[in-house]
């Protein structure tokens, strides 16, 4: 089996790609929601991202993929050897820590709660009468990405559960006499089609960035999309080879940006601008400002800029704010248009 469609070969959809790269540079931005038309490559793009994420260093044998650099004491360090569910463990048995690909975990519709939060290990309980914890998806997604396709169709009880974990960064399991707490910090990525239904406001709020994708209307783009897809399907290996260089370029760019992130300066003026903008748009709470600044900083790092400026804020404002506007029933224009209007108000046309 070859890998998924390469990220760099995706035609257009720049805002979606940019938002995902920003989230890859700074996980604290808080996730990305991709909403839009059918057949626009939403899930293809998200899955392609996995290949571009810098590897992470994990403690050998830790089912939660703890970072050896800072063991904050969150992980209970299960004494039971993990199941072969993790690719990481299948590989070599080196000393204490090693580099593994950052996890990108799919949370499929129809998943059961026990597989998501983790539960009593049924096999061991049944066969040996042992009480052991079997980590779930949330444990596997720690320090990586958790992806939910058709997020607006996710069962309510799973949404409830995610809301809590996404906010606290840890998964607290209290079931079947087990009492486990483990870190579960992940970047939440959701995609969906608005025609299938809306997202609960609380869940919407958990996403740092939100992008809207539409079907490309111009012919040449469409031709190119179909051509590349067709070539990929005909000969995935050759296709990958053709895009290897581009992929490596983006991968390096993300890595460099991660290193540069700390050094990107946010002048007072930028904070003031962000507040001004959020006030003009009447967004709820402070998360808008925070996300806006963080996203602008990550964007600056990606572009090799040393400072967050007006242009940088402007560039990320739509994706950071469009899902945070209060519903105004008398304003028929879309939220994107309203953000634009706010931008013009604050920054001038």
């Amino acid at each position: 089996m070859t890998g998924p469609f390469p990220f760099s070969a995706i035609v257009g959809q720049d805002e979606m790609k940019r938002a995902l790269m920003i989230a890859a540079v700074d996980p604290h931005v808080g996730g990305v929601l991709v909403f839009g038309d059918r057949g626009t490559g939403k899930s293809t793009t998200v899955r392609a991202l996995a290949a571009l994420l810098p590897k992470i260093r994990v403690v050998e044998g830790c089912p939660y993929g703890c970072d050896p650099a800072r063991l904050a004491g969150l992980c209970p360090r299960c004494e039971t050897p993990a199941k072969p569910a993790k690719k990481a463990e299948a590989a070599s048995a080196k000393p204490k820590s090693r580099l593994v690909p950052a996890p990108v975990i799919d949370l499929p519709l129809g998943a059961t709660e026990d597989r998501v939060v983790g539960a009593l290990d049924l096999e061991r309980a049944l066969t040996r009468g042992e009480k052991a914890f079997e980590p779930g998806l949330l444990a596997r997604a720690n320090r990586g990405f958790l992806y939910i396709d058709e997020v607006n169709l996710l069962e309510d009880h799973l949404v409830d559960l995610l809301l809590d974990v996404a906010a606290s960064g840890e998964n607290l399991v209290e079931r079947e006499g087990l009492s486990i707490r483990h870190p579960a910090r992940f970047v939440l990525i959701g995609s969906g089609n608005p025609e299938e239904g809306e997202l609960r406001p609380q869940l919407l709020d958990r996403f740092g960035l939100s992008v809207e994708v539409t079907t490309p209307r111009d012919l040449e783009t469409r031709v190119e999309v179909v051509r590349r897809r067709d070539r990929f399907e005909r000969d995935p290996a050759a296709f990958h080879e053709g895009w290897d260089k581009e992929e490596a370029k983006i991968r390096r760019r993300i890595e460099r940006a991660r290193k540069a992130l700390e050094a990107v300066e946010v002048p007072e003026a930028a904070y003031a601008r962000a507040s001004e903008l959020c006030m003009a748009l009447n967004t709820d709470g402070l998360r808008g400002e925070l996300t806006l600044i963080r996203a602008a900083r990550a964007a600056a790092a990606l572009d090799g800029r040393k400072q967050v400026d007006d242009a940088g804020l402007r560039g990320v404002a739509p994706m950071a704010l469009r899902h945070r506007l209060r519903r105004d029933p008398l304003d028929e224009s879309g939220s994107g248009v309203r953000v634009e209007r706010g931008l013009e108000e604050v920054f001038g046309a």
Partner: peptide, 24 residues
């Protein structure tokens, strides 16, 4: 819509990983 989304996901990916009790 829920069933349709499950079918669509299986068609798109060519495989499923259900993450359901007993099926990993």
């Amino acid at each position: 819509g829920e069933t349709a989304a499950r079918l669509a996901g299986a068609l798109d990916r060519g495989h499923i990983r259900p993450e359901r009790t007993g099926v990993a």
